[in-house]
Design a protein around this nucleic acid. Structure first.
Length: 255
DNA sequence: GCTAGAGCAGAGGT
DNA sequence: AACCTCTGCTCTAG
């Protein structure tokens, strides 16, 4: 039996034409203004296990999420060429997804051994970032964007490199587009000696959802976005982070 | 309901 | 942190 914490709460609208209008942005801005006056916290779902501490919520309703998805599809410039490749066991592969990075001016980060400069925030990304800040109380100076074209695109099990991240600031993962399964596995439940029978924690990341990964989740738990061949539509994932300047080194991978 | 085959998902090796 | 292979599970057409 699956133990998914959440199931499709809302049907994805990516397969419809509903978002092809300017109305959602107007409505979103109006709602932001209303929220200023009648601000009430969004409902969070706590996800906990040994050494794992996450919070999950629906940050955007379907209309807002559709709008942001569409905007990002038009705006985001993903890496191509060598920057979209990766060496594993001596072989070069194209990474099974698309990636892009945006952030505060001058922020450097390392990826697959190459130092790159974060692109400047777009207005859409600033909107989303500010919504996340408003919902969480945390500020972010960097976002890594992963685009999964369909259920064949995926990311393998990994932990985020915390050495250049501010551990007091959670990683905030916003999902837009197709809902995808997301799996946490405790490091001690993986292969090798000293293996312990710790159940994986599985969730489904819905269109418009926000997953906060709090300390010390990334110390003990690996996470992945597994292949799901039945998924035919794209998903865009934004992981907002706080990078500590002068502490930057290698190996950001994300979800 | 039952069965056989296809396809999917997960684990381990490289 | 990628793919490949192997194994076991689930789904479905007949």
């Amino acid at each position: 039996m699956d133990k998914f914490v959440t199931r499709h709460r809302k049907r994805s609208a990516v397969e419809t034409d509903e978002w092809k209008t300017e109305e959602p942005l107007k409505k979103y801005k109006e709602e932001c203004e209303v929220e200023e006056e009648f601000s009430q916290p969004i409902p969070w779902q706590k996800i906990e296990a040994e050494g794992l501490d996450c919070d999950y919520s629906l940050l955007f309703d379907k209309e807002e999420a559709d709008y942001f998805f569409n905007q990002l599809e038009e705006e985001v410039e993903y890496f191509t060429g060598d920057k979209a490749k990766l060496q594993v066991y001596g072989k070069t592969y194209s990474i099974p997804r698309k990636q892009a990075t945006y952030g505060d001016e001058g922020l450097m980060y390392s990826f697959s051994g190459v130092q790159l400069l974060a692109k400047p925030w777009t207005s859409t990304l600033e909107h989303i970032r500010d919504a996340v800040t408003k919902a969480t109380g945390h500020m972010f100076n960097f976002v890594l964007i992963n685009r999964y074209n369909d259920g064949h695109d995926h990311i393998g099990e990994h932990r985020d490199d915390e050495r250049e991240l501010d551990p007091a600031c959670p990683i905030a993962s916003v999902s837009l587009g197709a809902a995808r399964d997301f799996v946490f596995r405790h490091r001690d439940a993986r292969t090798g000696s000293g293996k312990r029978p710790i159940e994986p924690v599985k969730l489904e990341l819905a269109h418009g959802s926000l997953l906060l990964m709090n300390y010390p989740t990334n110390t003990y738990w690996y996470h992945s976005l597994p292949v799901r061949k039945k998924v035919k539509m794209p998903r865009i994932n934004l992981t907002f982070r706080r990078i500590v300047k002068n502490k930057q080194k290698t190996g950001i991978k994300t979800e």
